[in-house]
Design a protein around this nucleic acid. Structure first.
Length: 112
DNA sequence: AGTGTGACAGATC
DNA sequence: CGATCTGCCACAC
């Protein structure tokens, strides 16, 4: 079995797994941390495979506006919001409340 | 090897 | 201010 670093996806998985409980991050932040600042879409695509093939807290990853864009990809979709609320993150209208407060930036915390 | 697509992001109208 | 369009990187077929 190859390590999670086998490709760009694995890198994304690791970063997502490093997200502390009660915190969230954005696709762009991860992409930027990986060096693909413009590859936010690739990060989102990675998450798609992440929750499908890997154990990754993808529910802690939202778009730059704190919106639970990919919640519909969960099973059930409500689980994403439920998981976030379970960690102390409030969700209002599919959006993270105080997104700025709970925002966890890998570039900042991991200090690349 | 080429084409299409994707859970985004930023800019423009 | 809100809606719309393009740009971007990496994977799947």
């Amino acid at each position: 079995m190859k390590t999670d670093k086998e490709n760009f996806f694995g890198l994304v998985y690791q970063v997502v797994r490093l997200i502390p409980k009660g915190r969230v991050t954005s696709y762009g932040a991860i992409a930027n941390y990986l060096g693909a600042k413009s590859g936010a879409r690739t990060v989102g695509y990675a998450m798609n495979a992440a929750h499908t093939m890997h154990d990754v807290p993808a529910h802690r990853v939202v778009n730059s506006k704190g919106l639970l864009t990919g919640k519909f990809h969960f099973s059930p979709p409500d689980k994403m919001q439920a998981s976030l609320e379970s960690e102390g993150i409030l969700i209002k209208n599919d959006q993270v409340v105080d997104f700025q407060k709970v925002f966890w930036d890998p570039n900042m915390e991991l200090a690349l």
